[in-house]
Simulated assay, not measured.
Amino acid sequence: MRPITVIGNWKMNGSKAACRQWIDTVCAEMEKGMPAGRRFALCPPYPYLSDCSQQISACSSASLALGAQDVSAEMGGAFTGEVSAAMLHEFDCKYVLVGHSERRDRFNESDRLIAEKALQALDQGLTPVICVGETADERNSGRAVEVVRAQVARQIAILQDRLVDSLLAYEPVWAIGTGKVASAQIAQDMHREIRLQLAEFNADVASHIGILYGGSVKFDNAVELFGMPDIDGGLIGGASLDPQEFLAICRA
């Protein structure tokens, strides 16, 4: 059985006070018990990683892990503004998002660059969460599967067997921050396409890798989404800012 993984992505939101309150609330509830076979993580903005790391490590519950929202494709050197995987490892990050649609769109990140970031994360013992997904125009023109398969194919070509130590996240761009959500069946259909594509490469990778869904996930739709056979959890955006909503999704 693949575990259900729920990751909160705060994007460029939050504050030191909000982080403290959020972690206090979430850890206190997780210490009371959470469903078995599940993993949970928070990806706050870079400036809050240190405080969040210390606070999470002080929790008696080991359920919540820390993640980052991006990582450099370089090991180190003259790359002003970049943050390396080794630096994230020092803050006890377990996960790192790579290739989020906002990074692809606004910062022109290519599939090759995303794979190189994933490799850096893997080299430091982090689990990269590799995001793929189509725009509204690509879906409306009937190219959704073609586009997502091309994105996954580049990850397979570069990461090869190391892909099994990653997570994939299918996030249709038209459902991110819009309030729109792919129906559970639409999401399942794409997750199934991804898993079948992975099976063409390596059946073991296909059966073991977790594929998360991201795109306006809330408690109201999480139950149905997580019940689908090829959906292994969620990458939660806006809803993760509310600790009670995040906890409800974690229990879904």
Rank of each mutant, 00 (worst) to 15 (best):
I158L: 14
L163F: 03
D161R: 15
P172K: 04
R143W: 04
R149K: 13
Q151K: 08
S141I: 02
V148Q: 01
D161V: 05
A157N: 11
D165Y: 11
A144D: 08
R143Y: 08
R143K: 15
V164S: 06
V145F: 02
E171S: 07
V148S: 07
R139W: 08
S166N: 04
Y170F: 12
A175F: 04
S141D: 13
A144G: 03
A144Q: 14
L168C: 02
Q151C: 11
R139V: 02
W174C: 02
V152E: 02
V148C: 05
I158A: 09
I156P: 00
V173F: 03
A169V: 15
R162L: 05
L163A: 00
V145D: 09
A175G: 01
Q151R: 09
I156Q: 13
R143A: 15
L163S: 06
W174K: 00
G179E: 05
L163M: 04
W174M: 03
E146R: 12
D165M: 06
T178N: 01
S166Y: 06
P172Y: 14
L159N: 05
L167R: 07
R149V: 15
Q160V: 06
A153S: 14
R139Y: 09
R143V: 00
R149E: 11
L163K: 05
V173I: 15
R162W: 10
V173D: 01
I158V: 15
R149D: 11
R143G: 00
